[in-house]
């Protein structure tokens, strides 16, 4: 034990004393204001606009705006045919989705009409309500190992092939921004909006 130790000890006592008296006075003022006041609004005044961020140019929007709606909004120029789509499928898709789009390791895309097939997989033919979704999804996310690598033309070809393989279009139909939204998918009528609303009923 040396003199420094006692110095520290003394300092510690002084500190505790100050802290205690501070605590007591804090307690006192807290008692006086047990009702705490909190602004319901974010601040005294919330501006109509903050002005943060920057204006998007049309070029910036066009670069990202790749979605396609069932009414055809968003479909690009170009067209596709079944035969060319089949060739692309057999190079870029068959490994995951199987020969003819049936039985692949990452799911069938084409309905298996073989009555002996018990798997009853959900496919484009029996489950997808809109044909435009095929174009949208293939373009944004496929092939899985090279997403976004297909040209619009290639996506149109593949869309034509997948619809034909599912017996939705014949092998002469050309798929483009005008024809694709007109196709009525077999499963469209099967979908109903969610009617769960809480409450006692189990739905």
């Amino acid at each position: 034990m040396n003199i420094h130790y006692f110095k520290y000890k003394l300092l510690a006592f002084v500190c505790v004393g100050i802290a205690l008296s501070a605590f007591q006075s804090a307690n006192y003022s807290e008692e006086k204001s047990t009702l705490t006041y909190q602004s319901k609004k974010d601040s005294v005044q919330t501006p109509a606009n903050f002005g943060f961020g920057r204006k998007a140019t049309q070029a910036e929007i066009d670069r990202l705006d790749i979605d396609v709606r069932p009414d055809g909004k968003g479909l690009p120029a170009g067209s596709g045919i079944v035969l060319k789509g089949k060739a692309i499928f057999e190079t870029k898709c068959v490994a995951c989705h199987g020969v003819g789009g049936i039985g692949g390791i990452n799911g069938s895309l084409v309905t298996n009409k073989n009555p002996l097939d018990k798997k009853k997989e959900k496919t484009i033919g029996n489950y997808w309500p809109y044909a435009t979704t095929v174009f949208d999804y293939v373009r944004r996310a496929m092939p899985f190992n090279a997403p976004g690598s297909l040209t619009n033309e290639e996506v149109y070809h593949l869309t034509a092939y997948l619809l034909n393989a599912n017996e939705i279009i014949d092998d002469k139909t050309v798929i483009n921004a005008q024809t694709l939204p007109k196709i009525v998918m077999p499963a469209q009528k099967l979908f109903v909006p969610d009617d769960r609303k809480g409450g006692p009923e189990i739905k």
Binding site: P70, P129, Y130, T132, D136, Y137
Partner: peptide, 15 residues
């Protein structure tokens, strides 16, 4: 985020 007057029926909300 694209503001719209209809849903898009994307793959993740259909298939």
């Amino acid at each position: 985020l694209e503001i719209s007057d209809a849903p898009f029926y994307t793959r993740e909300e259909t298939s």
